[in-house]
């Protein structure tokens, strides 16, 4: 009997499956996203003299409101306009959702090799590469919508992609350069003790990557592709019901994935915890530490909504190309210097 339970545990906690489907993949990502949306609404409400979601569960601060919204999205009629390009209109958001979730498999959440989903030697490169696939489908969704606002929105999206992708690649790789490895496990393990977290040793790259994450995931002040007062809902104007929910969800999942990457590269991943070799102390606890850190990063992004307006597209691109790319290069140079001086050697 116990063999069966062992087998079941082995199947469930088989890293490639577990990471994609349960944590930090689909299930955990959904929970984190729901928490973050709730947090975002409550934070904005606190700053803005409001109460925010409340009525549906006063004791939980209206947390169940998000589940009510989810239910509504799930059961609302999905309207597919006759003028759209149907296969792409339906397929693009679903593909974008799956692809935006894919990078979680290529990241390690423990230093115990038994719990790696993939060989981790080039995991940083692989993660960055996988994270750049999904935006093209958002552009496709907007194009297939056959709506003026959607086309403008997807054009803006494509402009922004070109600006932020380079930033994320440079800044993420500067972490690898400093630690002299493309292996995320090495990068994380190099960041001991506490003051060697790369956010402290290389704040420029960290700040730039943070700004790039804001840009990549339509966070304020770069909420440009979905600017409501200008282009209704950007690329998702024609979507309704669950399809719209999926679109919004995939944007948040993308933010979650980037936050995980940011945590691993700049915030010391599962550190200061030292993973053991068993399931609980070697896999679950470090995973939870990483998730908590990533959630804090997302919470900071959410808070900025209450403080900033949005840039204009040309100003955001201008900022990206003229300010942040030089900053990213400076950060990269700093990382080279650290590598030369052997800070993480």
């Amino acid at each position: 009997m116990t063999d069966w339970i062992r087998l079941l545990i082995d199947i469930i906690f088989w890293p490639p499956l577990f990471q994609l489907v349960i944590a930090p993949g689909l299930v955990a990502a959904l929970l984190v996203v729901i928490f973050i949306i709730w947090f975002e609404r409550k934070t904005a409400a606190r700053v803005q003299m409001r109460i925010g979601p409340y009525h549906i569960s006063p004791r939980l601060g209206g947390f169940l409101q998000l589940f009510a919204d989810l239910t509504r999205y799930a059961f609302q009629e999905i309207i597919i306009p006759t003028a759209v390009d149907k296969p792409i209109f339906i397929g693009a958001p679903l593909t974008a959702l799956v692809l935006s979730l894919l990078p979680v498999v290529s990241m390690p959440y423990t230093s115990t090799p038994y719990y790696y989903p993939l060989p981790m030697d080039y995991s940083l490169l692989l993660t960055v590469a996988l994270s750049t696939i999904s935006p093209i489908f958002i552009v496709a969704a907007g194009w297939a919508s056959n709506n003026k606002f959607a086309v403008i929105g997807s054009l803006r999206e494509s402009f922004v992609i070109t600006a932020y992708e380079l930033l994320i690649v440079i800044t993420a790789l500067s972490g690898g350069v400093a630690a002299l490895s493309y292996n995320l496990v090495d990068i994380v393990n190099a960041q001991t003790p506490f003051y060697k977290w790369m956010i402290f040793t290389n704040p420029i790259a960290a700040l730039t990557m943070f700004a790039a994450i804001l840009m990549a995931t339509s966070g304020f002040p770069f909420e440009i592709p979905e600017a409501e007062n200008e282009i209704v809902a950007g690329a998702f104007t024609e979507y309704s019901g669950l399809m719209y929910g999926i679109n919004m969800g995939s944007a948040y999942i993308k933010r979650f994935v980037y936050s995980l990457l940011f945590t691993l590269v700049f915030l010391g991943g599962w550190l200061p915890y030292k993973p053991g070799i068993h399931l609980i102390d070697g896999y679950i606890i470090p995973l939870v530490v990483v998730l908590v850190k990533a959630t804090i990063v997302m919470a900071i992004i959410s808070f900025l909504r209450a403080v900033y307006g949005r840039f204009r597209i040309d100003q955001a691109l201008d900022g990206a190309w003229r300010i942040f790319i030089p900053l990213a290069l400076i950060g990269f140079g700093l990382a080279l210097l650290e590598a030369y001086m052997g800070v993480y050697a």
């Binding site: 934070t43 409400a45 606190r46 003299m49 409001r50 109460i51 409340y54 900025l304 209450a306 403080v307």
Partner: peptide, 19 residues
């Protein structure tokens, strides 16, 4: 300045919503 004002109200919200 903007972030500090935001944080100030995040820590100590001023709301008079009628429930």
């Amino acid at each position: 300045g903007a972030i500090l004002v935001g944080l100030k109200y995040f820590a100590n919200p001023n709301r008079f919503t009628l429930k």
